[in-house]
Design a protein around this nucleic acid. Structure first.
Lengths: 207, 207, 207, 207
DNA sequence: TATGAATGAGCTTTCATTCAT
DNA sequence: TATGAATGAAAGCTCATTCAT
C-alpha cells in the first residue's frame, strides 16, 4: 500500500479538517488568480472558504506559506493527471512511460500559461524544490512521497533506491526550469527545440 | 526646432525640478525591479531619491501614476536609443531606416526581458497608448511629440501629416503587442517568425 | 413585544460589543462638544473610549458616519425621555399624550441649545430623516422601529398602519425643522408662537 | 485729522501691499463661508487672492490670525456702514445718534445671520475684544481708533476722554454679546425685547 | 477546534510652514 | 518683497495576527 494518507480510517473530524484545508487552498488559488498575491487579504481567502479569519492560522503560518502550498498543490494536480495519462497508455518500457509522463506535464503547462503567470512564475518554489522539507508542508510531502516511491520502484535497476528521490527531483527541476524559461521567456529557445535536448538528457540519466 | 523642452533656457530651479523628477522615476524603477510594484512603498521611492515623502506628491498623483511614467520613461529610453542607432547607419531610404529603428526596439526588448517582466508586462500601458493624453503626463507627452514630428516629416509623401500621429501609434502598438506576446508568451509563434510578417505589414503601410 | 433588541438573550460577547459601540458614541459626542467635529481625530475618539484605533473601523465606516450616529443616538435619547414623561401622565387621549410628548422634545431642545449647536445644527440629519435607511445604521433603525410601532398602534383608527411610519416622520421632521429655525435662528418667529401653530397642524393630522 | 492711514501719501508699493492684504482677507472670508474654517486651506486662500502660498505668511501669522482679522474686518465694515447711516440722519442729540448707530448694527446682523453663523459665531473675538491689542493687528487697530476718537469727542462732557475707549468697548461688547445670544440662541429672550433693555442701559451710561 | 473582536504597526495622503532664490 | 518647492508631522485607514471565549 503506497497511500500516504489512509483516508478510509480517518475519523469524520479528521476528514473535515482535510476538507477545510482544501477549501482554503482553492479559495487562495482563485483569489491569487483574480487579484494577485499582494492584493489578496487573509479575509478574502477565509471568506471564499467560508471559515473564520482565525481559522486560517490553524492551517497555515501566513500568506507566503499558503502561496507555496497552492503552488505545490496545483503542481501535484498536474503531476497526478500526467501520471494517470501515462499509465493509461500501458507502456512496456518504463523509460518511455516516464518520458511520456514528463511530456504531458509540459503540454499541460504550455496550455495553461495563466498558471505559469500567476502561480507558477514561482515554479521553482513548487513541487520541484526544497520547501517540501520545511515544516508546515507535511501533507504535501506525503503526496509527493507516493510519486517518489513509484519512480524508485520503476528504475531500481538503474538508479540506486537511496538516490531515487534526488534523481527524480533533479529531473523535475530541469523540467520546471525549462518550462518556465522556454514557455514564458522563450529562453534560450522555444519549447519544442528544448524538449528534444531535455529528453535526450533524461534518457541518458535513466540508462 | 523640434525640441519640445528648451533645456538651455530653463532656470536653475526648473532644471532642478526636472532632475528631481528623474531621480524619483529612477528610484521607482529600481524599487519596482527589486521588490515589485506592490511591495514598494512611497517611502521607498522617496528614500531612494533622497527627498521627503511629501515631495512625491508634488510630482505624481499616486503610485499608479509613477508606474505609468516609469513605463513611458523607460520606453522612451529604448526608443531614443534605437533612433540613434538607426540614424548612425545613414540610410538613404526612410522606410528602411524606420524598419531598422523598429528592429532595434525589438532587439533591445529581447535582450532585456527583465524589463518586459517588471515594467513591460504593462507594455500596453506604455508609450504606445492613451495614458499620454491624460493629465499628469505633460512632460512625457512632450518627449513623444518630438518623435511623432520626425516620423511625420519622413513620410509626408505617403502619410497625410494630419494622420501621421495615428499611423505611428498604430505601428508602435503592433510592435508592442507582438513583442509582449511573442517574447514573453511565445504566442502565436517565436519572435523571428513574427518579425518577418510584421515588417511586411509595415512596409505596405508606408508605401 | 416591542423591543427590537432582546438584551436578555444576548451573549456576553454581543453585550460587550454593544457596550463598546456605546462607549465610542459617547466619546465622540464629548469630543465633538469639546473640540468640534473637524478638530476631533479618530484617535481622540478611540482614546476616550479606551479602545485601539483599528477598533473604530469595526463599528463605523468613518467620522461622518459616527457623527450621524451620535446625532441619531442623542435624538433617540431625547425621544425616549420625552416618551417616558408623557406616559407618566397617564393621558386618556392618545392625541394629547402625543402632543405632550412632542412638547417635551421641544422643551428639551430649548434647554439644551448646546446640543442644537454642536450636534443638532445637523438636526435634519438626525432621527428625522433618510440616513436611517442607509447601511451601517442597523442598530439605530431597530431603536426607532419601536417608537414607530407604538405610534402606529396608538393611531390605528385614524392613520392607515401602512402609512404610520411616513406620518410619524413627517411630524417629526416638522418638529425638527421648527425647532432648529425657531430656537436657533428665531425664524420665522419665536418658539412659543410657532408651537401654537405647529400643534394645531398636528391635531388636524391625527383627527 | 482722524485718518489713521494717510492713503494719499502712500507710495505705489505700499498701496499694493494694502490691496494684497485686502484680497487675502476677502478670499479667506469667501472660503470660510463656502467650506468652513477647518476645511479651508492656506492654498485655497492664496489661490483666491492670486498670490503665492508663501506670501500669506508675509501678512498673517497663521489661519487663526486671518480668521480674527476677517471677523474684525467685516465687523468694521458693518460699523462703518451703520456710522454712515446715523450721520445721514443729522441728529441734534449725540446720544440718540449713537443709539441709532447701535440699532443699525443690530439690524444688519439680524439680516445677515450667515455672518453670525460662519464668522460671527466668534463674535466675541471680533471688534469687541482684546485681540486688537495683540501684535499682528496693527492695521485693524488703526481703523478702530478712528471710531474711538469720534466717540470720545461726542461724549467728552459725560465720559472722561481717558476712559472713552473702555466705555465704547464695554458698550460694543454688550451689543455683540446680546446679538449673538439673542439672535442665534434666542437667549434670554428675543432680540426685540432685549433691545429695549439694552438701549435703556446705554442711555444711562451716556447721561 | 473554531471563532471573530481586538489590536497596532505601517501605509497613503494632506497641508501648514519654512526658506533659498 | 514675492515666490513656490520642499518638508515632515499628523491624520485616516487597512489588515496580518493574536487571543479570550
Amino acid at each position: 500500500m503506497n497511500k500516504a494518507i489512509d483516508y478510509e480510517n480517518l475519523s469524520k473530524k479528521e476528514l473535515n479538517k482535510i476538507k477545510k484545508r482544501k477549501r482554503l487552498i482553492e479559495s487562495a488559488y482563485n483569489c491569487f488568480l483574480e487579484k494577485g498575491f499582494e492584493k489578496t487579504t487573509i479575509g478574502d481567502i477565509t471568506d471564499g472558504a467560508n471559515v473564520a479569519k482565525g481559522t486560517f492560522y490553524l492551517y497555515f503560518k501566513d500568506k507566503v506559506q499558503i502561496q507555496n502550498v497552492v503552488t505545490l498543490y496545483k503542481s501535484y494536480g498536474v503531476i497526478q493527471q500526467s501520471l494517470a495519462l501515462s499509465r493509461e497508455r500501458k507502456f512496456d518500457d518504463k523509460t518511455e512511460e516516464f518520458i511520456y509522463f514528463l511530456n504531458e506535464i509540459i503540454n499541460y503547462l504550455e496550455n495553461h500559461t495563466e498558471m505559469l503567470n500567476t502561480i507558477y512564475n514561482n515554479l521553482s518554489k513548487g513541487i520541484f524544490n526544497a520547501i517540501l522539507y520545511q515544516e508546515g508542508y507535511e501533507q504535501e510531502r506525503d503526496s509527493v512521497n507516493e510519486i517518489v516511491l513509484e519512480f524508485s520502484n520503476s528504475f531500481k535497476n538503474v538508479i540506486d533506491p537511496g538516490e531515487a528521490r534526488e534523481v527524480l527531483f533533479i529531473i523535475l527541476e530541469m523540467v520546471g526550469g525549462v518550462c518556465y524559461n522556454s514557455i514564458i521567456l522563450n529562453q534560450p529557445s522555444n519549447i519544442e527545440d528544448m524538449k528534444l535536448v531535455l529528453f535526450k538528457c533524461i534518457r541518458k540519466i535513466l540508462s
